[in-house]
C-alpha cells in the first residue's frame, strides 16, 4: 500500500512527502502461454502456424495478427532451438543498488529456424561483442529443467534458456533475415 516514512531531510523551503505506492495483481497465464511454458520446461520451443497465411508465431499468441483468426493447439509446431541474430544491443551496466551485471553484454533478436518472427532480448553467451553480426548462427543454452519458467503472459522465452552461443556454422545469407532487421 503506502510507505510514507520520511526519507528526505525536511528542513528546506520545500517540504517533501515520500509516498511509495504498490498495487497487488493476480497474474493469470492464458491457456496458450501455459501450453508454451509446459513445452519449454520439456526443452521444446513451440509456435502456432496460421492455417491461413502459414506464418509461424513464436511464442504462440492464440491468433494470427495478420489474418485476425484464432489459432489453437491443432496449429502447434515445434521450432528449432537454433537461429540467426537479426539485431542486437550492447548494454553497459550502470552500477546501481541491486545491479547484478558488471561487464558489457549483448541482447539480441533471434530469428529461430522454422519461425517467421524474432524472439527479442536474448542473451548472447561467449561471443566477443565486436564479432556479433546479422546472420550469426546461434543455438540455445538451456537452463536446468527446474529453472525453465515461461513468462506468465506469453512474452519471450522466460527463464527457459540461459542464452545463445555461436554454432560455428557459416552465417545465414541476408535474404533469410533482411525482413526482420530494424
Amino acid at each position: 500500500m503506502t510507505d510514507t516514512d520520511p526519507q528526505v531531510a525536511d528542513d528546506g523551503p520545500v517540504r517533501f512527502m515520500p509516498q511509495l505506492i504498490s498495487l497487488d495483481y493476480t497474474v493469470r497465464t492464458n491457456p496458450v502461454a501455459a501450453a508454451f511454458g509446459e513445452a519449454l520446461a520439456d526443452g521444446r520451443i513451440t509456435g502456432h502456424r496460421c492455417p491461413s497465411c502459414s506464418l509461424v508465431f513464436v511464442p504462440p499468441k492464440g491468433f494470427c495478427p495478420i489474418c485476425t483468426i484464432e489459432t489453437t493447439s491443432a496449429d502447434e509446431v515445434v521450432i528449432e532451438d537454433r537461429g540467426m541474430v537479426t539485431a542486437w544491443t550492447v548494454l553497459t551496466p550502470i552500477q546501481y543498488h541491486g545491479q547484478q551485471e558488471r561487464k558489457d553484454y549483448a541482447l539480441a533478436s533471434i530469428l529461430l529456424v522454422g519461425a517467421d518472427g524474432t524472439v527479442g532480448q536474448q542473451r548472447l553467451i561467449d561471443i566477443p561483442l565486436d564479432e556479433i553480426r546479422p546472420g550469426l548462427m546461434v543455438e540455445a543454452v538451456w537452463a536446468a529443467p527446474e529453472d525453465r519458467v515461461a513468462d506468465d503472459r506469453g512474452y519471450g522465452l522466460g527463464t527457459a534458456i540461459d542464452g545463445w552461443k555461436a554454432t560455428g556454422e557459416p552465417d545465414a545469407p541476408a535474404s533469410e533475415y533482411e525482413g526482420h532487421t530494424l
Binding site: R28, T29, N30, P31, V32, A33, K61, G62, F63, T68, E70, R153, G154
Partner: peptide, 10 residues
C-alpha cells in the same frame, strides 16, 4: 478470464 486482453478482443 484467463485470456489475454488481445485474445479476449479478437
Amino acid at each position: 478470464t484467463a485470456e489475454s486482453e488481445t485474445q479476449m478482443l479478437l
